[in-house]
Structures are given as C-alpha cells and as structure tokens.
C-alpha cells in the first residue's frame, strides 16, 4: 500500500489540525475574514474541520470602510452559504469615536488604523484567539511567526520572546487579558493557495480575475479609481486590463496588468511571476520594516 498524501493534502491536514486545536484550547476564538483569498481558504478549511457541525466561532471582518464593492457582495453571500455568524469591526466607528485619527495627504490610507479597530473588537467581544490567514512566505517578518502567536495585554508581538513550537504541540496557555493570533496557513505559499482553490473549486471575488478597470498609476502599482482614490497632480486615469493579486483596503491595494481570467491562467501567471505578491501593497513599501513595525503594534 502507498500511504502517502500529496503536499496540498498535507497542508490541508495541518491547517485543519490547527483550527481544531484553536477551538479546543480557547474559550472564545474568532476567525478574521477579509474577503481575500487566504481568509476564504481558511474559512473553507474551518468548515471541513468541524463538519457536520457548524463553525464553533464567528467570522470577524475589520472593515476599513474603503472596500471594493465586489468584496462586500462576496463576503455577505459567502457568510450566508457557510451558515456562519459575522461580526464587523468598523474603522469608521473608531474614527468617529475619536479612537484613531484619519491620515491625511495624498497617500492617506486606513490600513494602519485597522490595528486599533482590530484590538478594540478583540477586547469588546473578549476574543482570546484570532485566527488569521497570514502566511510565512508573504513577508520577512511573517517568516518568523508561530502557528500560535502570543500577544500581550496591549496586543503586541514580541519577536524575541516567542514560544518555541515543537512537533505539533501548541501551547495556548495565557494570562487574563492576553490573547493569541493563530495562523493555520503558516506553511502555505501563494502558489499552494491558488492550487488549492482550483482543486476545491472555491468561488472567489471577481477582483482576482482579469477585468477592465479605470486605474491610476502610482509608484509601481495601479490603484483603482474610486470614491477614496482620486488622481493627484500629474496622474491620469486610464483604463487597463488588470487583476488584483491581494485584496485589501482599496487605498493601498494595487492591481497588476494581467490577462489571466481563469484559475489556470492565474496559476500560470503566479508560476512565472517576477514580483512578490505584496509588491503591489503600498502599505508594505512605506519602509523596509513596515510589516515588522505594524506587527509589533498588533497588526494581523
């Protein structure tokens, strides 16, 4: 007999194991759901992990208010299909309450503000574990992340003081007021995610597929022209055939020119890509340590 399973099945089994550990070790976990492909895959795996029971935790969306409309439509139908509970943490509400100040200036983004809303949401609902779709291949600070990542009572990450993680034994013990971030997709790469989406025939927001869109070239990427992104002096709005490799806040998530309108073509494109996936994320390019600094503050 050949008792082997391929690498996607191994990654799937590992992620399901981590999701079940999270449900078992914490009183009140939540799954952070952005409507991006990684959180979609994570939620998909969560359904498998607990089937035929419903998810033992809600989906939490940290809403910057600067969303692509397609993401919101997708989110609502996805949540309904899953039969899951949805909790929304609103950055706009944090701004209105004076918890954060909106950035001003041409490159203003609400990306940084999400951290406060996230931590407030965690505190309000007393979540003791937040499942995130972060992957270690995304960014160098994430390469150092654990499956079970302890956060202090301020929600901060201390990369020098992480719990060693051996075999598949996870230590989720914590003091009152502390919480954990849990990353079931730690060992997945961008390619794995796409291959899995194809294998499982998971429906995605159409932003991921090539389409015509009015965009503004800024730096290395094309930002979608919308209510929140207007051309600055010297910039022009042009129509391009583009798709998004990641989906986040509309003000900082850039599109790439692409003809890939099917999963097969996307996988082909990912296989030959010469830029990293987050190369179009303006939030990562603010400085060389942008992700490390945000993570220490309590970002995803």
């Amino acid at each position: 007999m050949n008792y082997t399973i391929d690498h996607l099945a191994q990654l799937e089994a590992e992620a399901i194991y981590v999701l079940r550990e999270t449900a078992a070790q914490f009183e009140n976990p939540a799954l952070l759901f952005s409507g991006g492909k990684d959180s979609i895959v994570m939620a998909w795996l969560a359904r498998k992990a607990f089937w035929p029971a419903k998810l033992p935790f809600p989906l939490v969306h940290i809403d910057t208010g600067h969303n692509f409309e397609e993401t919101m439509t997708y989110r609502d139908s996805f949540v309904e299909n899953m039969g899951a509970r949805l909790i929304v943490g609103s950055v706009q509400a944090s701004i209105d309450a004076g918890r954060v100040r909106e950035e001003t200036g041409p490159d203003a983004s609400r990306n940084m503000l999400q951290t406060v809303t996230l931590l407030d949401t965690v505190e309000k609902h007393q979540y003791d574990a937040a499942l995130g779709g972060g992957r270690r291949d995304e960014e160098k600070a994430r390469a150092k992340e654990r499956f079970f990542s302890a956060r202090d009572e301020f929600g901060q990450w201390d990369p020098k003081n992480q719990r060693p993680e051996l075999w598949n034994i996870f230590n989720g013990r914590k003091h009152h007021g502390e919480h954990f971030r849990v990353f079931p997709l730690s060992n997945w790469t961008e390619m794995d995610i796409w291959m899995y989406i194809q294998r499982e025939e998971i429906e995605l927001p159409n932003l991921y597929f090539s389409h015509k869109r009015k965009v503004i070239k800024r730096g290395n990427s094309f930002l979608a022209e919308c209510e929140y992104v207007a051309p600055q002096a010297g910039e022009v709005v042009e129509e391009k055939v583009v798709r998004f490799r990641t989906i986040g806040d509309a003000t900082c998530t850039g599109a790439v020119e692409s003809e890939a309108d099917t999963l097969d073509k996307i996988i082909q494109e990912v296989a030959t890509a010469r830029q990293t996936e987050r190369g179009t994320r303006a939030d990562d390019q603010r400085s060389e340590t942008a992700m490390e600094d945000r993570k220490k503050e309590g970002y995803f």
Binding site: R136, D137, K140, A143, K144, P159, K160, Q162, S186, N187, T189, M191
Partner: peptide, 10 residues
C-alpha cells in the same frame, strides 16, 4: 539570526 525562520521553495 535570533529565531527560527521558515522559508519555502519548490
């Protein structure tokens, strides 16, 4: 290097 980092390639 202060900690274990994980890298991926295929």
């Amino acid at each position: 290097t202060i900690d274990v980092a994980y890298r991926y390639f295929a």
